[in-house]
Each structure stands twice: as structure tokens, then as C-alpha cells.
Amino acid sequence: RLQSKAPRIRFVYEAGPCGYGLYRQLVNKGFDCMVCAPSLIPKKPGERVKTDRRDAIKLVRSLRAGDLSVVYVPSVDDEAFRDLARTWVSARDDLKRARQQLKAFLLSHGVRYTGRADWGAAHQRWLGAHAFDSAWQQLAFEEHRRTIEDRFAQCARLETALREAVPNWRFYPAVLGLQSMRGVQFTTAVGMLAELGDLSRFAHPRQLMAW
């Protein structure tokens, strides 16, 4: 229906939680499609009424004026690897949060570790030997510890999966190159490249740093 009205059609939509499936479908059908950054769409002062029709008109006008900022769309494989990396980062954040909750629980009951609470072997032995007088508090304490053990096992599984997957990733040489820099380890290199994607899309280092 649209092709019958115009010789050339361009599609544009805002990046959102539904991913890039629509973009890939349109591109595979031979259409020109652009995914724009919602936070960078120009807005007029006092413009508060938001409907689908108004948004569509505003997007078309901004596209025609060249005021939209394009969002980088990763390849299917790059997006899949990024999903794995993000899941790993989320698991590490959950592990950190679980450890903080256990520390807060012990602190609230006046239980303090005299050594270095670095979750090493000595710290783990101390946690395993401690017991509360109240059965209810002991149950809560054991649940905190069990949560930490589960999160730690999850992090180990995901890190193993990443190390096995990264040699087959097209950016593996870049991962090795970043690790040759001082202070950049495997976790940092993989996390950076999983989010940045193809570095050649940046014409200048200033663009990379601005991103």
C-alpha cells in the first residue's frame, strides 16, 4: 500500500524494549530503515501530549530535517554474545548485592568478623562455623549464605561459557588486543566490546569517548 504511493520509502522508529526484529525484517525486504535514539529526539517546550499519531508525525518531520540520531544495530551474533555478557554482569551484580545483604544482616545483630572480610577461605570457614541462638535467625542466615553460593555458581558457569564462546566471536582479536593494555583483564575487555560492538563505526576517538 505504501509502495503504491511513493517510489521510495524510509522507515523510522524509536529504539525500545522490543529489540531490532522489526528493523531486520524491513531490511531483509529491501526497505531503508532507521532506529533512532528516543532520548535525542528534538522536543518543543511545553509539548506534553503524546499519542501514536503525533509521535509518527514528529518522527517523520525530524527524519526529513536530519535531526534524528541513529542507533547502532548489532548483528544477530553480536547481539547474542552481548546478551550472554549482560547476563554475566547481572549475575555479578546480584552476587555483590547478596554479599552486602549478608554483611548488613550480621552487622544488625552485632556479629563482626575480626579478619579481612574478602570472602576468602578463612572468611568462608568463619561464616560456616557461626550459628545464631534463634532458629528463625539461623534460618535467615542460612538462606543468605545459600543465595551467595547460588550466585557464585551462576557467575562461574557464565564466565566459563564466555571464555568458551569468545574464541568464535569475530571481535576475539580485539579482546586479545585490549588485554595487552595495562589494567585491562578479560572481564573488562569482553564487557567493553560486547557493548561497543564494531569499533570501526566511530570515525574518530572523540566519537568513541562521547558515546
Rank of each mutant, 00 (worst) to 15 (best):
V60F: 08
R24H: 01
K96H: 09
S134R: 02
Q207P: 10
R99E: 10
I148S: 04
A15P: 03
Q179L: 03
D52N: 01
A56P: 04
V190P: 10
L68K: 01
M192I: 15
R182Q: 14
A104K: 13
K5L: 11
Q25P: 04
L68I: 00
V27I: 07
P7I: 04
L2N: 14
A80V: 04
C33F: 01
D77V: 04
Y13P: 00
Y113L: 01
V12R: 00
A37H: 01
R170Q: 14
V35L: 02
R116H: 15
L176Q: 02
G21W: 12
E143I: 11
G115S: 04
H123R: 07
L102D: 01
A156V: 05
A122M: 13
A56H: 05
A104Y: 11
E143T: 05
A6L: 00
D67R: 07
Q101M: 15
Q101V: 14
G183D: 02
V35I: 00
E47T: 08
F152A: 09
L95S: 06
L178R: 03
A165F: 07
I57F: 12
G183S: 05
T87R: 08
R64K: 11
A91K: 12
L196A: 15
I57S: 04
F11S: 01
Y172F: 03
A37K: 12
P42T: 03
G191N: 07
R157V: 08
I148G: 01
E164M: 06
G197E: 01
